[in-house]
């Protein structure tokens, strides 16, 4: 579609204003995030520009501090366990959701997606009241269960969307050639929907890895996660070590974003083949 070559002056002004506003909004969205990256390489104590010199001391402090590395390890333990559980439960449930229509499906869908909708503080307080008498507060299993519940809907949404584009005749062909349900799943369905499952898993991991409200209520000192450590850091005194932690997390989100984009393209390609 060729752009109209002749533009009236008012249209040109209109386009210029649109670009100007958009550039300002992009600046607003990105500038604060990008502003803290150079500060993490500062040799000075203060979070101000101009930075006195380049140094990696805050990264050294991050990786040498038991508190920061311990919290990173806790975040990984909780994030990976919750992701594994949520992905397994969510993928299987998605297969059921696209396979048949039955009464009450809307209600079931509502329950499955409800952790995405209920405000986090309510979820956190609910878990706190519920876990305390069971002895599950301040334990890893408690935190992992809570994060699995929170992350599972993201897997359901992503995988059902992928399955909507999946040609069920392939599964029928596999069954007619004598494959059992589990062979069909692992050899035919799973390889084809793998990109969707992987993006669901990434969403689940990001959800758990960035979550702090539930951690505030349910976790004990032994389960302090990276966001929890940052929360108290921001609240008490914001040190340059936080900017180092933030830079590491920004790097991680770039990796996540890139991985999702690759998976999206792969998924689109697979759909083209199917």
């Amino acid at each position: 579609m060729a752009a109209p070559s002749v533009r009236t002056p008012s249209e040109r002004i209109w386009t210029a204003v649109l670009w100007a506003v958009s550039v300002l909004v992009f600046f607003f969205l990105l500038a604060p995030i990008l502003a803290i990256v150079p500060l993490s390489f500062s040799s000075g104590q203060f979070l101000t520009y101009p930075i006195p010199g380049f140094s990696l001391r805050w990264y050294a402090e991050f990786f040498q501090s038991e508190q920061w590395t311990g919290s990173l390890a806790n975040s990984l333990i909780v994030g990976i366990s919750a992701t594994a559980l949520a992905t397994a439960l969510g993928t299987v449930a998605s297969l059921g959701l696209v396979r048949a229509d039955f009464r009450g499906k809307g209600l079931i869908m509502g329950v499955l997606l409800s952790p995405m909708i209920v405000p986090l503080v309510i979820t956190a307080v609910g878990f706190y009241f519920f876990f305390a008498p069971l002895g599950l507060t301040a334990t890893f299993p408690g935190l992992i269960v809570a994060h699995t519940a929170l992350a599972a809907p993201f897997v359901v949404v992503t995988v059902t969307a992928t399955l909507a584009g999946f040609d069920m005749n392939l599964a029928r062909a596999s069954a007619s050639l004598g494959a059992g349900p589990s062979t069909t799943f692992f050899k035919v369905i799973l390889p084809l929907i793998a990109p969707g499952v992987a993006s669901g898993a990434l969403f689940a991991f990001a959800t758990s890895f960035d979550e702090v409200v539930i951690v505030l209520f349910v976790a004990g000192p032994g389960q302090r996660t990276l966001p929890r450590e940052m929360f108290s850091g921001i609240r008490e005194n914001i040190s340059p070590t936080i900017t180092a932690a933030a830079t590491i997390l920004i790097l991680l989100s770039i990796v996540l974003l890139a991985a999702l984009e690759l998976l999206r393209r792969r998924n689109a390609r697979m759909r083209g083949q199917a």
């Binding site: 960035d210 936080i242 933030a246």
Partner: peptide, 19 residues
């Protein structure tokens, strides 16, 4: 738009405190 969307909530909050 997507990069800020994927950046940790606490990173963005910390950034605004610094700024």
């Amino acid at each position: 738009v997507l990069l800020p969307f994927w950046t940790s909530l606490l990173v963005r909050t910390a950034a605004w405190v610094v700024v």
